[in-house]
């Protein structure tokens, strides 16, 4: 719908600008706080312009961390979080692509039951089954490892369901044409179904990467060694200090650093999103 009403244009822009300000201002404050010395943030009047402590704060956090709070260097936690989020996102996509493929394209006994079983696990996120899951992971000896961090989070009913819905919109003739063209099931999956779903995969990757990135409770349980700490845990540890004010500049610097990877992921995937919106034809 294209309308030419100047006052409406102005109003919509105003709403958008206000919305952006509401979202962006706290991030800006966090950045400003990270560039001042520790006391600046708690003085009562918050500075709104960058201070001169930026290089020192960031290099300190990235390089050595805060021993006092029991926090390893931020780069280590960033790496841990990155691999955790990456393994979870990729693992979830692979598993749910395959299970959705099985559910949509194969007629096997108890197929509907299998689907609903997967679907019901939507109601059982990690938080609900945390004790048994922890027990299983501990018994398998996976505490303090990437496998322990990621495996329990990989099975995904949401992604399976989304791929199932998408596969059901893919015309059946495509599968039949592939069969006539001599492609077996896995060849069809690899050559046709996955490329056709690429925009959905990209969208899910972004969502799942962020899901993995913001995990707090699970890493807190399964990691006791500093070398496996994730960034979200680190932020929490920085803030929980006894008998003194947290070093807000350090906390904020960590927060800003923690935000960067998800932002990069969203930005780099944006193009595929748009493509997914424009491409209507399957």
């Amino acid at each position: 719908m294209v309308e030419n009403r100047p006052w409406l244009d102005a109003l919509t822009h105003l709403v958008l600008v206000v919305g952006v300000l509401i979202v962006a201002f706290p991030v800006y404050v966090a950045f400003i706080a990270s560039t001042h010395e520790p006391s600046a943030f708690v003085r009562g009047v918050m500075p709104l312009l960058p201070g001169d402590n930026m290089v020192e704060t960031y290099s300190r956090m990235l390089g050595e961390g805060l021993e006092l709070a029991g926090t390893p260097p931020v780069w280590l936690m960033l790496t841990n979080s990155f691999w955790m989020a990456m393994i979870i996102a990729v693992g979830k996509i692979i598993i749910s692509l395959l299970s959705a493929f099985a559910i949509v394209y194969f007629r096997f006994p108890l197929r509907t039951l299998a689907f609903w079983t997967i679907f019901i696990t939507l109601m059982l996120p990690v938080e609900v089954r945390i004790m048994p899951t922890f027990a299983v992971v501990a018994d398998l000896g996976l505490l303090n490892s990437y496998a322990g961090l990621t495996l329990p989070l990989i099975a995904s009913a949401t992604a399976t369901f989304l791929f199932r819905q998408f596969f059901m919109t893919v015309p059946e003739e495509l599968m039949e044409a592939a069969r006539v063209d001599g492609a077996g099931p896995m060849k069809f999956f690899k050559d046709i179904l996955v490329p056709v779903s690429i925009t959905n995969i990209a969208a899910l990757f972004v969502i799942m990467f962020i899901y993995g990135w913001i995990q707090y409770l699970w890493p807190l349980l399964v990691t006791t060694q500093e070398q496996f700490y994730t960034i979200v845990m680190g932020i929490k540890r920085l803030m929980a200090q006894t008998d003194r004010e947290p070093d807000w500049n350090l906390v904020m610097a960590t927060v800003i650093l923690a935000m960067l990877p998800p932002v990069l992921v969203v930005l780099s995937m944006q193009r595929l999103f748009v493509k997914g919106l424009v491409e209507t034809e399957k």
Binding site: P171, E173, L174, E176, A177, A178, R179, V180, D181, G182, A183, D191, I192, P195, V196, I198, E281, K282
Partner: peptide, 18 residues
């Protein structure tokens, strides 16, 4: 179907879009 050595033309063409 592939072993029957036939070729089929579908109503909606069923071309591989990618």
């Amino acid at each position: 179907p592939a072993e029957r050595d036939i070729a089929m033309v579908f109503q909606n063409y069923a071309l591989y879009p990618h």
